[in-house]
Design a protein around this nucleic acid. Structure first.
Lengths: 230, 230
DNA sequence: TTATGTGAATCCATTCACAGCT
DNA sequence: AGCTGTGAATGGATTCACATAA
């Protein structure tokens, strides 16, 4: 109804579009004009059937017998993700992580513009980080209005994250990227994505543990002692 | 066969265990002895049926009519994730992000011990970051052997990430957390998890875009101009 | 002939609803 | 009476396999 593909791209597909976009960018930089679903899938680390299904949700941008035009597909993916426009981003909390984020090159290259930094610490307020003056957290609402920030990044300590989140929401921010190790409560029309650095490590630890115990079970000597009771 | 629950916890469940663990920790700190699936689910931001299904994969640690013992459940989740042991972590690349990670409190509290930092930049080598001397990337293999590092964290620029990854793998590291914006190629027995900071923002942008266009379509004035062709 | 796009089958995850235990 | 743990139903995502188009 609303668009070319009767709007409704699966969540799982959206989560992979940024990967495809990155690979397409690398291909374009290398001067590649055309790419097949097999090649693109291999570079992105997914199966080719999955890739074709994903792209089919955007429309028919491939050519049978040939493949996809790299430039054109990259543009279509960009547009679908909303990256053809400029997104002003406000970072709340300018500690180690916050200042690393402020300087992260991957943001600027995708249309994300860090437009303001705020912090509550008097020692940090007023200092310049990556060319931006850190503003007082007390004036967060003014900063949002003044910069037109659309997306808020929370890089504060856990105890104040919910409070800062509430203030972002009441100032009109409806998309939040949360690095603080807490589960935020927000109204239904606000989207929160959480990046939890230690969570990722925990999942790795789980898998590493399984690999290690499998290796022990497979060991002729240790295996019988550990698993072979009976 | 191998354990209490015939090994095979769904991927999706494993990804949520760290959330439950965090909430359980907060409850324990607050002195709560017992928690029901409804309460725990609400705090974790999931449905209670999903939570009970998830926990059922670990075993029967609840008491009908009562709920779960906070301490005991936290221990069981910890154990399942492999957090009752110590995981030496090596960070490769000590730029802004790498040094932020080196000081991240969430690591230490979950059994992850940053055991070494390496970098290729002569200006950085030899400096002390978070109490650790930065060692030369040239000696990466020696550092892995000497520290017994199990998990490698890649926080290098994109162009060198694959090379550093290869060297980690050949030195025996089989679990890698990748912050560099590239898709790494590794042997089948190596696990890689990728944290892509701009990817998360891109997904938010996609949703924000949908919200905005929905708002325009719903607007009596702008709606007809934007969407209602024909 | 080659490689896309997609029905159809399959697999996995979520949700419902309630039997069973305390 | 209350809450867990789980069959059964549902819903999404992945994979297969091929009709279709260049």
């Amino acid at each position: 109804m609303t668009g070319p593909t009767s709007r409704g791209i699966p969540e799982a597909t959206v989560a992979r579009l940024p990967i495809y976009l990155r690979v397409l960018g690398a291909l374009a930089d290398a001067g590649t004009r055309t790419v097949s679903s097999d090649e693109l899938a291999a570079l992105a680390g997914v199966g080719s059937a999955k890739l074709r299904r994903d792209l089919s949700h955007l429309g028919s941008y491939g050519t049978r017998g040939v493949g996809y035009d790299v430039e054109h597909l990259a543009y279509q993916v960009s547009r679908e993700l909303g990256l053809t426009q400029d997104w002003p981003v406000l970072i709340v909390g300018v500690g180690n992580l916050g200042s690393a984020l402020a300087g992260y090159a991957g943001f600027a290259s995708r249309g994300f513009r860090v437009c303001a930094l705020v912090d509550a610490d008097p020692d940090v307020i007023g200092t310049t980080v990556r060319g931006l003056r850190v503003q007082p957290a007390a004036e967060l609402e003014d900063v949002v209005r003044h910069t037109g920030a659309c997306i808020g990044v929370l890089a504060t300590p856990a105890p104040v994250a919910q409070r800062m989140c509430d203030r972002l929401v009441s100032a009109g921010v409806r998309s939040i990227l949360n690095f603080a190790p807490v589960v935020l409560t927000v109204p239904a029309d606000v989207d929160v994505r959480k990046v939890d650095l230690s969570m990722e490590l925990q999942i790795l630890a789980f898998k590493e543990q399984r690999k290690t115990s499998k290796a022990i079970a497979a060991s002729p000597v240790l295996g019988s002692a550990a698993g072979g009771v009976r």
